[in-house]
Write a protein that binds this DNA or RNA. Structure first.
Length: 459
RNA sequence: GCAGGCGUAGUUCAAUGGUAGAACGCGACCUUGCCAAGGUCGACACGCGGGUCCGAUUCCCGUCGCUUGCUCCA
């Protein structure tokens, strides 16, 4: 067994091998943006399809949706994003530390009702009551400044406020506003779920830790609508379902943990939340997905703001009610990072040589097979085999360098199988298959390859 | 956004007030022909701008970017 490799080493490897590139690199990058290279793009697609397969295709209750990023701004008033994403921040002029004005007041004057104060009130209060900076003890603060977490843009070419729209900070709202559409057109009865995957944007102040926290990220979310008072059962059900999904990604169990939120930690809309965290090297535990009981909060708010009827008529009981919602939500970029990090291994070989291997599950690997002619003289036969296999699988081809070196290259990027063309291939119409993890080889007729891999690659 | 640190081939590192070397990696050819072989050859770098200077990759300033910490994190 090799010891745990540093996070830094793995991210360097990912950037060297075509999984991840720094964003806008030829312009010296842009803080905290990343592009997925050819391999990363394949891996991302594979994980997204596994999620879709598990949560949409294999679920008898669920359907998919692909909602727009830009939404009517009233949506974000209804959810509270416009107001609570406007946190009042002040800086200490002496030590430059930054604080939330409302928290400062709460901490130093617990009896004051901060929620009822306007920002002007808070400014005034801070001055007249001589609040001190918890860091340096001085009493000089800048006026309150607002940091809106939502990216703003405009529809149309004029910049008046009536045309302001936001990039969505979560995909969930695209589902809630379509609850009635989906229910009616798909003739769905409760309980049922709507899955929606796509980019979300949060203009967070702090960047950090490679692709783990970025301002632009892809979410895989499901909103599962159920009858009130059945929500806790469904909460437990989807928690377990998520566990199975993570298992199917092949991540080592000891690197995962489940953490129930304490009541004080819960978001205001949520009755219960469980996070699943992954133990990253160097970084430690980081959230990969969350399952939340969102109650009827979202639909109720949308009903209030849109003045549309968002209730569900239950034909079994002849009741009308707003459904409760269980939401398993995960970050695709984080799932990717987890899978890439977890699969990475450096094996010490005799002679001090190091063999780097990504033990990706075949279903996730960017390339399933590498076709490797033993010599360039065998190119023609190699390309023939390539064109048979790439009708069915994602395949790469390499005829440069020694065969051992080419095996290592494929190990490094996680290709589970290599197909080697040798000088006997033309005569016996057979090739050698070399498996990544065991490094074992078997001989097989070319005609059997497609069937063989169809079974091997998708269980 | 604030404070510190840092910017030399793809990567890891050198050297230098007179325009830069290596290793690994990459490519071609020869050789070999199933687990990083060898040989020959080749491509690729001083983040950007300004100042000082005869001359700046080197010194100074600015800028851009990265990074660590803080702040933030529905």
């Amino acid at each position: 067994m090799s010891e745990k490799v540093s996070f830094d080493k793995i991210t360097t490897h990912l950037q060297q091998t075509g999984y991840v590139y720094q964003g806008s690199q030829i312009y010296n990058g842009l803080s905290n943006t990343w592009d997925y290279g050819p391999l990363g793009a394949e891996l991302k697609r594979n994980i997204r399809s596994m999620w879709w397969k598990k949560f949409v295709q294999e679920s008898p209750t669920n359907v998919g949706l692909d909602a727009a990023i830009l939404m009517n701004p009233r949506v974000w008033e209804a959810t509270g994003h416009v107001t609570t994403f406007n946190d009042p921040m002040v800086d200490c002029k002496a030590c430059k530390a930054r604080h939330r004005a409302d928290n400062l007041i709460k901490e130093q004057y617990p009896d004051v009702d901060v929620d009822a104060m306007s920002f002007e009130d808070m400014d005034e209060f801070i001055k007249t009551h001589e609040l001190v900076c918890p860091v340096c003890g001085k009493k000089e603060f800048t006026p309150i400044r607002k940091f809106n977490m939502m990216f703003k843009t405009h529809i149309g070419v004029t910049e008046d406020s009536s045309s302001t729209v936001y990039l969505r900070p979560e995909t969930a709202q695209g589902v809630f506003v379509n609850f009635v559409n989906v229910q009616r057109t798909m003739r769905k009865k409760l309980p049922f779920g709507i899955c929606n995957a796509g980019k979300s944007f949060r203009n967070e102040i702090t960047p950090g830790n490679f692709t783990f926290r970025t301002r632009e990220f892809e979410q895989l979310e499901m909103e599962f609508f159920c009858k009130p008072n059945t929500d806790l059962e469904w909460f437990a059900y989807w928690k377990e379902y998520c566990r199975k999904f993570l298992d199917s990604l092949g991540v080592k169990d000891e690197n995962l943990r489940y953490r129930d939120h304490e009541p004080a930690e819960l978001a205001f809309y949520s009755k219960a939340t469980t996070d699943v965290e992954y133990n990253f090297p160097t970084l430690g535990w980081g959230e990969i997905l969350g399952v939340a009981d969102r109650t009827d909060y979202d639909l109720s708010r949308h009903q209030e703001y849109s003045k549309q009827d968002l209730t569900y008529f239950d034909p079994d009981t002849n009741e009308r009610y707003i459904p409760y919602v269980i939401e398993p939500s995960m970050g695709l970029d984080r799932l990717m990072l987890m899978v890439m990090v977890d699969s990475y291994e450096e094996q010490e070989l005799e002679g001090g040589d190091v063999r780097t291997v990504m033990h990706l599950l075949p279903a996730l690997a960017p390339y399933k097979i590498a076709v490797l002619p033993l010599s360039k003289k065998l190119s023609e036969k190699g390309k023939e085999v390539l064109s048979i296999l790439n009708k069915h699988f994602s395949v790469t081809y390499d005829e440069t360098g020694s065969i051992g070196k080419r095996y290592r290259r494929q190990d490094e990027i996680g290709t589970p199988y290599c197909v080697t063309i040798d000088f006997d291939t033309s005569e016996d119409q057979s090739v050698t298959i070399r498996e990544r993890d065991s490094m074992k080889q078997v001989r097989m007729p070319i005609d059997d390859l497609v069937n063989y891999f169809s079974v091997k690659l998708f269980y």
